[in-house]
Design a protein around this nucleic acid. Structure first.
Length: 137
DNA sequence: TTTCTGACA
DNA sequence: TGTCAGAA
């Protein structure tokens, strides 16, 4: 019962996916044929059903396509981007010791990144921007 | 009505 | 990639 991911139940048809992402159904079928995206072909009359993951990838590919990349490059970028995101998430998930919001309305606060040598390391976000701050232990 | 595959002025 | 056809 590890319902870690919500939206696992989502089943999006090609028509809705096309409307949501702005990618034509013809393109979606072609991308799938090329192996760039995958659909869960569960029974039906052969009608494709896409999951949340596919939606993210489709949005990502379209994003890079709009920036001028060729389809192949856009797919590479999208896959790289996803892996970088996973890496980033893993790193911070294990490194972060604590988070404190200094502003309820805006996204400002400080992230406790633990200690390094004799310094306490913080990731700070405020009106001045985003930066690293060190505090002597 | 929507989706599928295949084909191409 | 768009679009049309013929079927499900």
């Amino acid at each position: 019962m590890d319902k870690l991911k919500m939206g696992d139940n989502l089943r999006i048809g090609i028509g809705d996916m096309s409307k949501m992402t702005g990618v034509s159904s013809r393109q979606l079928r072609y991308w799938e044929q090329k192996g760039y995206i995958k659909a869960m072909n569960e029974e039906e009359g052969g009608a494709r059903k896409y999951g949340l993951g596919s939606m993210y990838k489709i949005f990502a590919i379209k994003h890079f396509l709009d920036e001028g990349y060729t389809l192949a490059k856009a797919v590479e970028k999208a896959e790289l981007h996803r892996k970088e995101g996973i890496l980033l998430h893993r790193v911070f998930r294990t490194l972060i010791k604590g988070i404190e919001l200094t502003d309820e309305t805006e996204i400002k606060g400080r992230v406790d990144l633990g200690t390094a040598d004799s310094y306490h390391v913080y990731g700070v976000v405020d009106e001045k921007g985003t930066r690293i701050e060190l505090e002597k232990e």
